[in-house]
Design a protein around this nucleic acid. Sequence first.
DNA 1: ACTGCCGGGAT
DNA 2: ATCCCGGCAGT
Length: 485
Amino acid sequence: MASVLSRRLGKRSLLGTRVSAPSTLAEGMLVATQIPGLQTDLGQASAHTALREDGSCVPSVEESSQGPRFPSPGCQQLCAGQQVLVTYNGQECAGLVEQHNPLSEKVKVLLPEQGLQACWRVQDVRPAALQPPALPAAGGPGPAEALQRSVSSNIDVPKRKADAAVEMDEMVAAMVLTSLSCSPVVQSPPAGESASRVACDPWKESGDVSDSGSSTTSGHWSGGSDISTPSPPHPAGSPKYSIEALSSPQVDDGFETDSDPFLLDEPAPRKRKNSVKVMYKCLWPSCGKVLRSIVGIKRHVKTQHLGDSADSDQRKREEDFYYTEVQVKEEPAPEAAAAASPTSASAPIIIQQALAKPEALLVEQPALEPALASSALSQSAPSSFWHIQADHAYQVSWWHLPGTGHLPKSCRRPGRCPVCSSSPHRDVSSPAPWLGEGLLRVSAPPAITRFRGEAKKCRKVYGIEHRDQWCTACRWKKACQRFLD
DNA sequence: ACTGCCGGGAT
DNA sequence: ATCCCGGCAGT
């Protein structure tokens, strides 16, 4: 079941995902769109805004070259402090130019009324003195504009980009990556803007965690995107980021909402209330850290426990054995608390645990350590024995976890359980007791572990046809008394 | 399917 | 106490 669950969450395609957003097409706000398979119209591309980690909104670059929504009165250089008009949330808002980047054709505008700061494209910023053009949001788009929007900016459509535009993309991407490298928590916004920032900052919610989902997501998108940086936590400019940004359900408030961007009517399994989700718990002795992504837990194991020595494949794959899946029921926690604690580890959790990858060791271990395995197997024990040991060795890693309380069924039989009888020889508290040399350490298995295969029991020795020669115990289907091993 | 053997019923 | 076997778990 755990494998099913893990499969379920890992690969969520965004294709066809419906993203809810206000229908009003206004600059600087989020727009309803559908993540296309191949032919969905993305004509509203010009309204796509990617959210940067500082909360400001950046129209995605590749779309900005696709036709301005206003005949560019804003191509002129704007001075800092200059009063301008922008369309925000369907309304004409006065703002102050804070910064104009002619290279990227973006203008950072401070909206005092809204108490926020956002980026607009130059074309979309009008000097306050000028008569504003017909507002699209007032009564819907005008005919010409509607025509323009109907132009598809399907992902597969090759972008007409000048070299300068490409450079711009790179610059923006660099900026974005740079800004992303700083924690959004660290860059805490001014108090007046906190509400909007929270809404504009999906990463704050996902925290350490969203590696798995986002990597998959970005994988999907990077195929069709001009931006060729597939790195998972991709911020502004990344379609994934845009998608999450677009999912703000607040039509009226625009950015001024403190709602969680993931609590939507869209059936996003990410933050569904009362849903059981799979998390990953570190199995390292006395660690128990719980992360939401497989990538995260692997990174944790690697960096915290295995050491970051990228010396071998073995090291890398060992990470797999130090975490397990846990199914976590997410309480409908107070939003404030959820927003205040971006780290997943603090979520109200721990429900059921599930064995993460019992097959992993059986499958991978022999391949991982052929030399080790062969040396171990060169001893008299049959190979099946070593597989059994490996299996137990893996299992001991989780049933000795505090709180799990799991015992293998073989432990039902007192004094017979190979694990129980062998556990005194196993140093569980030491790092990686069951890996590598751990396999060697169990090389003196208790006798009972040989009960299969090489066991000589009356039935085996005499055969079913000479049942009369069996010991009575064997005849009675009891534990053989003749060949006590 | 086969094997080991526990638990329990029958005698 | 002895005999037998259903059923379970592991392989």
